[in-house]
Nucleic acid binder design. Structure first.
Length: 266
DNA sequence: CAATTGACCTGCAGGC
DNA sequence: TGCCTGCAGGTCAATT
């Protein structure tokens, strides 16, 4: 599922190909994709892409006074000029002939048109960007939280960009158990966690993200992510922990799977 | 205010 | 073979 490294990889792909381009045609094949947009998507036609930014898992394409806002949710793919097996939910055509398709098996993704004001509102409901988090900011984010550490890491209002897969990888790297109360970390553990967040997300981004066995994540050029082989615990239940050899366990916590090593995470 | 739960979706795996 | 159930999880709204 697209988390910060995947969304950032896609953002870079879009920035490369779309900056300076003008949208000449927009075909929405699935109305649900745009149903939460207060401004009709057709308003973007004739607009030129001046900048492609990212906030958490949201992609924000500035098109002069409006923003094309994209969220891939579980299975969204943004693909340039590919002939996919799956029909796109929308296709965007640009002045140089480039076509960008929004393909989305599970149909949770969204395409929205926002004004500057709405971008500000997004900022207010997201925590700081996870990939650059520093230990003192992290402690502020987690302080006085009584819920589970993993839930806090995955909560976009606390920290923006982490999802289920990287939360497990980060917790393994930091040698922390997912069910620890978020506010219970001492200063050593907080330092370890902040470092693990930056390291895991940074390495995953450098590898162009992670394509899991569902194969749903690919870059905007259609390439799979190369971090897959570097996963230490995610979807590796039963395999020996790379650090201590204890078999990796999979448990259910708050409705989602947690992959972790009971031998070295506490 | 913080935490939890259900809803939204589709494809696929597993059981019978 | 075919039907059914459960599962994958990001975000939001509603509830505790």
């Amino acid at each position: 599922m697209p988390e910060l490294p995947e969304v950032e990889t896609v953002r870079r792909g879009l920035a490369d190909r779309l900056t300076g381009r003008t949208l000449v045609r927009l075909d929405v094949h699935d109305p649900k994709l745009v149903s939460r947009s207060a401004i009709p998507p057709a308003s973007l036609i004739g607009g030129r892409v001046t900048d492609v930014a990212r906030r958490g898992k949201w992609i924000l394409c500035r098109m002069q006074d409006l923003y094309l806002v994209l969220h891939m949710r579980m299975s969204g793919q943004l693909l340039f000029d590919t002939d996919t097996a799956r029909p796109p939910r929308a296709s965007l055509h640009f002045d140089d002939g480039t076509r960008l398709d929004f393909v989305d098996q599970r149909r949770f993704g969204e395409l929205l048109v926002w004004e500057q004001l709405d971008v500000g509102l997004l900022d207010a409901r997201l925590g700081p960007e996870a990939d650059t988090i520093r230990v003192d900011d992290l402690r502020r984010c987690l302080a006085s939280r009584r819920g589970r550490l993993k839930a806090a890491l995955c909560n976009q209002a606390v920290l923006a960009g982490i999802g289920n897969m990287y939360a497990d990888e980060i917790l393994w790297r930091a040698r922390l158990a997912s069910d620890r109360p978020a506010g219970s970390l001492d200063s050593t553990e907080s330092r370890r966690l902040a470092r693990a967040i930056r390291r895991v997300l940074g390495e995953a981004l450098a590898a162009g993200g992670t394509t899991t066995r569902d194969g749903l994540y690919v870059t905007s050029e259609g390439d799979p992510g190369r971090f897959t082989m570097h996963l230490d615990v995610y979807q590796r239940d039963g395999e020996p922990c790379p650090r201590c050899g204890t078999p990796v366990e999979r448990v259910k916590q708050g409705g989602v799977s947690v992959y972790w090593c009971p031998g070295c995470q506490s």
